[in-house]
Write a protein that binds this DNA or RNA. Structure first.
Length: 507
RNA sequence: GCCCCGUUCGUCUAUCGGUUAGGACACAAGAUUUUCAUUCUUGUAAGAGGGGUUCGACUCCCCUACGGGGUACCA
């Protein structure tokens, strides 16, 4: 069996959304399971759509998720360069071979001439005329022009492309690892451009050449490529590489939540959830929210994504990356598109937050508070984790819920204030704060008897005392164990907040 | 339009001819809990439609419907 080599080949035309991340994930898992090589190749053949920073963004995202590449633009490798723009001459060389063999030809048609052809051939039955077996006879290409004319045009540096000469009346069969046998009639295929007039190859050309040259064994990519795979097979055939052609696996698409259409970058803002791994700022200054900044753990995102289109074949749902490497299989990839379900993504994340190791949690919580300009002591971070690990769905919840530990509440919960709080409790609470001041140690063991006694003497119930205290110290009546909250604040701060709280609760 | 792919609970999915069609999320109810969560228990909920093949189809075949992808000098 040949060595397993797979590639993830993003185009730096913007941020990579989670559909791309999932493709990268599946490639990574497959490679690692088989002891193969995971390669990153940057497909930057469209100069007009090139976006500065996009490549860096893509690489950073993969790094954040732990999808380490074995070969790629940053780490290099024996099959580089790994940026297609740096391989330009290679593609041209191969295209010329095809021209020599009669499997490709020069075409000199201008954009206007192309448009004219479409207009001419357009009809209700044929709304999108192709440059193909039928129409190429009427076009300005080396199939119709004399050799002299072609030489002349070429010598004058006339803008031209190189097109694949698709044969008529053949059937191209491919065996897809996910979908089984799929066949296409060459009748339906257009004469795809291989080399654009700027000298850059198209995706179709570049991917075939590179996959062969990089000895790719399996092409695992999105379903949007299934249709053009027939063209790719033709290229492998004409290059004489059909025996070494990689296996194909076309992944189902990730759909919008309502299921109509594939998920796109605008959907995040539209539905209120991230579709990108990390924040992405466009050149125009538009910001797209990322899973990372939204408070997702990489293991949560990965676990959520991997199940969108794959399953282990049994009832397991929770997987670490390592476990996925063991369990993953191309055979269990689902054929139909999967809708993006943010509720499930959150559930996975909440689960992994609960599983978080304390030292890592402390670090994470510290950095989240730091982003808000608040520096927590390790002890405070640890307390925050203990108080909210079972309540946090996203990491940012630790800040929003736990910030009371360093920030005084700006106001008392309105509903509690009007419906639950009784003005006559004010004095007793002030007295309580004084009693607290007498305490030697400010811990649950000493606090609990004090509060119990307080309830008895003033005829308060648990459900009245505890929420009141929470509102005074944090602003809201819900939250973790009160004693833990009090402890986390410490004696002086607690006393201060009770005094201020009584004021805030005044009707 | 044409080509390709798909279609099981609201969602993600299991089932590779014989099951009370299973699990998870979400939702609902209950238990635990000082509150909110967590946790636990229980519940509601599915094979697009029509033809075949077969002793027997969710499962195989065909048609229709619906959904998705493609149809660029974009990837």
């Amino acid at each position: 069996m040949r060595p397993i080599r797979v590639r993830f080949a993003p185009s730096p035309t913007g941020a990579l959304h989670i559909g791309g991340i999932r493709t990268a994930l599946y490639n990574y898992l497959f490679a690692k399971q088989k002891g193969g090589t995971f390669i990153i190749r940057i497909e930057d053949t469209d100069q007009s759509r090139y976006v500065p920073g996009a490549e860096e963004y893509i690489l950073k995202s993969l790094e954040w998720l732990g999808l380490q590449a074995d070969e790629g633009p940053t780490q290099g490798g024996a099959f580089g360069p790994y940026r297609q723009s740096e391989r330009k001459s290679t593609y041209h060389e191969y295209a010329l071979k095809l021209v020599d063999q009669g499997h490709a030809y020069y075409a000199f048609d201008s954009a206007e001439e192309l448009e004219a052809m479409r207009q001419r051939l357009m009809s209700p039955e044929n709304p999108m005329p192709k440059y193909d077996f039928d129409s190429r006879d009427q076009m300005k290409n080396s199939l119709n022009l004399s050799l002299d004319e072609v030489q002349n045009l070429l010598q004058k540096n006339t803008a031209h492309v190189i097109r694949l000469k698709v044969p008529k009346g053949e059937t191209v069969k491919i065996t897809d690892q996910v979908r089984g046998e799929v066949s296409f009639s060459t009748q339906e295929l257009d004469d795809k451009i291989l080399i654009k007039s700027d000298g850059m190859p198209t995706y179709h050309m570049a991917n075939v050449i590179d996959d062969r040259l990089m000895q790719i064994s399996h092409v695992i990519r999105g379903e949007e490529w299934l249709s053009s795979t027939a063209h790719h097979v033709l290229l492998y055939r004409y290059f004489g590489w059909e025996a070494e052609m990689p296996e194909f696996a076309h992944l189902p698409l990730i759909l919008k939540p309502e299921g109509n259409g594939k998920l796109s970058k605008r959907d995040g803002a539209k539905f209120g959830f991230p579709v990108f791994p990390m924040d992405w700022k466009t050149e125009e200054g538009e910001v797209f929210l990322g899973f990372k900044e939204a408070g997702f753990l990489q293991e949560g995102l990965i676990n959520f994504l991997v199940l969108l289109g794959w399953n282990p074949g049994d009832d397991r749902e929770l997987f670490t990356l390592e476990e996925l490497v063991d369990s993953f299989s191309l055979e269990k990839i689902v054929k139909s598109g999967a809708r993006f379900d943010f509720a499930k993504a959150k559930w996975f994340n909440a689960h992994y937050i609960q599983q978080l190791e304390e030292s890592r949690a402390v670090e994470i919580i510290h950095s989240i508070f730091e982003k808000h300009g608040v520096i927590l002591t390790p002890h405070q971070a640890m307390l925050t984790f203990k108080m909210y690990r079972e309540r946090a769905v996203v990491l940012t919840d630790f800040y929003h819920s736990g910030k009371f530990i360093v920030l005084k509440p700006d106001k008392a919960d309105e509903e509690f204030k009007t419906k639950k709080w009784k003005p006559e409790w004010s004095d007793p609470f002030l007295k309580l704060s004084e009693q607290m001041n007498q305490l030697d140690n400010f811990e649950k063991t000493s606090l609990e008897p004090l509060l119990k006694e307080f309830m008895q003497t003033h005829g308060l119930k648990m459900g009245e005392l505890l929420p009141s205290l929470r509102v005074m110290i944090s602003g809201i009546p819900m939250g973790p164990d009160v004693y833990m909250m009090l402890e986390s604040l410490g004696k002086q701060e607690t006393i201060e907040r009770i005094k201020e709280g009584v004021v805030k609760l005044k009707h």
